[in-house]
Each structure stands twice: as C-alpha cells, then as structure tokens.
C-alpha cells in the first residue's frame, strides 16, 4: 500500500484509494499489547472480540476514581515545509503533507495539504482526517514534549535530561498529544464527546510522526 504523501508542489503520488486492510485486532490477540502494564494499572476483563483491551489506572487511595485508556486508532502524519517566523514569541510552521489513519475505531487518511503545525512554544496543529466513508474530521492537536534521563518507574519522579545532551547520552522523550476533534454527526459523532491522549513518535526518512491515539475512559 502506498501512502498519500504528496510532493511539495505536485500532485499525489498515490491513487487516493480509500481501501483499508481488514482490521484483525481480535484475531491477533489484542491483549498482548498490554502485557507490560505499569504497576497500579490492570487490564479489564475480556472485551468483546475486536475491541482493544483497556488499561485502568488508579491512585493510592480507593476513593480516587480510576481512569482508563483504550487504543482507538493510529495516524502517520508526513510533514513537508518547516518555517520559523521570528515574531515576539517565535511562530513555527510545519506543513502537513498527508498520511494514513488506521485502527479499530477509525480508518482513513490525512487529507493532503489540509493544514499544519503552527508551533508557538509548543505544538498546535490544525488539519483534517478523511475517514474511509468520506467524512471530514477536523483535528486540533496540542500537546507537550519533554526530555528525561530515563523512562518512568512507578513511584520515582522523572529526572530531567542533562541540559547538554550529546548524541550518545541516554534519554527518554515524552511526547504526548491531546487532540480535540470536530466530526460530522453520524458514525464518527463519538469523537465529539471523547477525550483523547496520544503517544507520539518522530520518525525520519521520510519525516513523519506516528500518533497512537487512546480514548480516555
């Protein structure tokens, strides 16, 4: 399958087809994805076939309400231009070229050239998904990133990474996105009433970010 990435000024390199592979999370044993849950989290009872397993997290006291996360879908977003405007608080521009959306609750593509990250101290990205049924879904994505010495261990505060970071310095980047979606009423309406949080991972060749979106339950 080809991506929907487009050349900077040209037309799509892909046939723009909307066919998607059948989603097989149940057959593949979605529970395996959660075998490394942090202490304090536990997987819920077996979910219906095809539904990813939710992980629930709680606090030290029993009266603290638990919060669950369940994988909803993933997106690979390809970026093209990177521009910085030296305004009083510098404004960045990183254009969204295109991409793919796949997962249990949403399949489709990133609408090519539908927006950008208009970065200002942190990212603030506006663009559109086009679902496999044709629906246009607007995403405003904000979020945070911060580099630490090592990944978190339960009960131990994260240590900031050293300020002078060499290419060999061990470190862990926490890069989280919090989208707000505006979807048409109908099949995608649930996205208008659900809070999401995403794991984000920068990848190169080509320049892209993989977003793993979780529903907050």
């Amino acid at each position: 399958m080809k991506t929907f990435i487009e050349s900077r000024n040209g037309s799509p390199t892909d046939d723009r087809s909307m066919n998607r592979r059948t989603f097989l999370s149940a057959a593949a044993g979605a529970g395996a994805a959660w075998c490394t849950l942090a202490a304090g989290a536990r997987a819920e009872e077996a979910a219906p076939a095809g539904t990813p397993v939710a992980a629930f997290y709680g606090g030290p006291e029993a009266d603290i309400p638990r919060v669950g996360l369940r994988w909803a879908f993933s997106a690979a977003v390809f970026f093209a231009d990177r521009i910085m405007i030296p305004s009083p608080t510098p404004r960045g521009y990183t254009s969204v070229a295109g991409g793919e959306v796949w997962g249990p609750r949403l399949q489709g593509r990133v609408l090519p050239h539908s927006g950008a990250d208009y970065f200002k101290t942190t990212f603030s990205t506006y663009y559109l998904f086009q679902a496999a049924d044709g629906a246009l879904i607007f995403i405003h994505n904000r979020g945070t990133f911060r580099r630490f010495r090592a990944p978190p261990e339960p009960g131990h505060p994260l240590e900031p990474a050293p300020t002078t970071l060499g290419p060999q310095s061990p470190s862990w980047l926490r890069f989280r996105a919090t989208p707000v979606f505006t979807a048409p009423t109908g099949a995608h309406d649930w996205m208008n009433r659900t809070v999401f949080v995403a794991n984000c991972e920068r990848q190169e060749h080509p320049d892209r970010t993989i977003f793993t979106y979780y529903e907050v339950l």
Binding site: F23, L24, S25, A27, A28, A30, A32, A33, T36, L37, A38, G40, A41, P52, A55, Y57, V67, L69, W71, S74, G103, P152, P154, R176, V197, A198, N199, C200, E201, I210, F211, T212, Y214
Partner: peptide
C-alpha cells in the same frame, strides 16, 4: 493491529 506507542497514567 495493535497499539505500538504506549501511554501510562500516573
């Protein structure tokens, strides 16, 4: 067919 990047709540 499964979530690759993790998010854990604390």
């Amino acid at each position: 067919d499964k979530a690759l990047g993790e998010v854990r709540l604390e």
